[in-house]
Design a protein around this nucleic acid. Structure first.
Length: 449
DNA sequence: AACCTCACG
DNA sequence: ACGTACGTGAGGTTC
């Protein structure tokens, strides 16, 4: 008869995850300690990072996050009114009622009834796509399209966030207690669920209302620190490309510096459009760029996208060398690996299906970058937690959002905690380029940015 | 349960 | 010729 405690089970989960993050954990299988110990890096990640982090995450979950419920209720009433107005405008605009929440019905209204696009693309299930991208392209053709977009934005904010979040408040603590999943992602990142606090709106103006409702405890301020461009800095470190490294060493605006190199102009001469393209290209590089993907993102032709990529690699030759090296390494080893030895197996890297193989190749480029960033912030969380404890501070780490950490900080501790958080984040590992953490303090999450 | 859509890094 | 940007989780509809 096996007697496995919850603690043993969570350790077994971590071991299984480190050995192969994409294989589902099976509690009936014995823990393969030998395999873990045989890999010095994985063993180290287990001992020094994941195991201590596990306790920290449970603590963060228990502490919870405070939310301004009256503010959310007020926003809900207001946005619900707007939603109803838009709903009526939509029905009037097309001369009939239908379920706007149904992509199927929206597609039939736009393409069968209003005939807004003869060659509308259908998915493999025979449905028209009515994604935001498609709707934006259709917007000039009929006033209902813009209304549907606005309806969607409001509906998303209300149903996923504004009306949902108060239901997660624990009546005993009065706070929201998310679950941080430590063994879910393929790359080593955390995820957050019930509710997901890692995807609260920030980009849209209306969405910012929700961040304003995330507040510190009584007598505390909300402190937020995030890594600046950590993934691009890792690309600079890994590739050792002289120009990319130099741009970070001299503290330049990285997207403007990239544009200057690609378009061969001085950094002062870079136009907004050039900077935008360079920024998109930088993201593309981290994702494992393809002309198609970049073209779609920039809304330009594939040949234009290819020219931009060629320009990028001409300007940063170390980057293309690094990308090719990563693909080759994955073919040889069968997995991609982070700076600290976290693995992601890529069996499809040798596939004869070009689509499948290309996916694995992009993973071979992206996983070490995304995964190393995850390793780094996890290590920072461990050292920050330790220092807060050692120095007898009452400040609490309460959230992690991939490249950002958030804290409840008593007023009199703000200066000290800011110094600790920023210096631990910046110095937890030393790379060819500096790691920079920006920090803000305020009376809600939005103010910190 | 699968699909579509969309929120975040 | 094909079908693609990387990683997640949640709400709503459809089957």
């Amino acid at each position: 008869m096996q007697h496995t405690s919850e603690e043993d089970d969570s350790k077994a989960r971590l071991v299984s995850y480190l050995l192969n993050p994409e294989v589902a954990y099976n509690p009936d299988q014995p823990v393969n300690w030998e395999a873990l110990e045989a890999d010095t890096s994985l063993w180290n990640l287990y001992q020094e990072v994941e195991l201590p982090l596990s306790a920290i995450l449970r603590e963060m979950e228990q502490i919870g996050v405070r939310v301004d419920v009256p503010m959310l209720k007020q926003a809900e009433a207001k946005l619900n009114n707007e939603l109803q107005t838009i709903e009526q405008q939509i029905y009037t605009s097309v001369g009939m009622t239908f379920n706007i929440n149904s992509p199927k019905q929206v597609g039939e209204v736009l393409f069968d009834q209003l005939q807004l696009d003869d060659k509308a693309k259908k998915s493999k299930t025979g449905q028209y796509s009515t994604s935001e991208e498609v709707l934006l392209a259709l917007k000039p053709k009929h006033p209902v399209v813009g209304l549907i977009l606005e309806y969607r934005e409001l509906k998303k904010l209300i149903s996923t966030y504004i009306s949902a979040l108060p239901n997660y408040i624990n009546p005993t603590t009065g706070k929201i207690h998310t679950t941080y999943n430590q063994t879910v992602t393929a790359t080593g990142r955390l995820s957050s669920s019930n509710p997901n606090l890692q995807n609260l709106p920030i980009r849209s103006e209306r969405g910012q209302l929700i961040r304003q409702a995330v507040i510190p405890d009584e007598g505390c301020l909300f402190l937020s620190a995030d890594y600046s461009q950590i993934e691009l800095r890792l690309m600079a470190h890994f590739s050792q490309d002289p120009h990319l490294v130099q741009a970070f060493l001299s503290g330049q605006d990285i997207h403007a510096a990239t544009a200057a190199k690609i378009f061969n102009v001085s950094i002062e001469e870079v136009t907004k459009e050039q900077r935008r393209q360079a920024k998109t290209a930088n993201f593309g590089i981290i994702y494992g760029i393809s002309p198609f993907g970049l073209a779609q993102q920039l809304d330009c032709s594939r040949s234009e996208a290819k020219a931009l990529i060629d320009g990028y690699f001409a300007a940063f030759p170390g980057v293309i060398d690094y990308i090719e090296k990563q693909k080759e390494l994955a073919r040889q080893q069968g997995y991609a690996v982070t700076l600290f030895g976290r693995k992601r197996y890529l069996p499809d890297i040798l596939s004869h299906n070009a689509t499948v193989r290309s996916f694995a190749e992009r993973n071979a480029v992206n996983s070490p970058i995304q995964g190393t960033a995850a390793d780094i912030i996890k290590m920072a969380m461990v050292t920050i937690h330790r220092r807060l404890k050692e120095e007898g501070l009452k400040a609490q780490m309460i959230m992690q959002v991939h490249d950002e950490l958030n804290f409840n900080v008593p007023l009199n501790e703000v200066d000290k905690v800011r110094e600790i958080v920023v210096s631990e984040m910046q110095h937890v590992v030393h790379l060819t380029v500096p790691l920079i953490a920006d920090c803000g303090v305020g009376s809600n999450w939005l103010q910190d940015h």
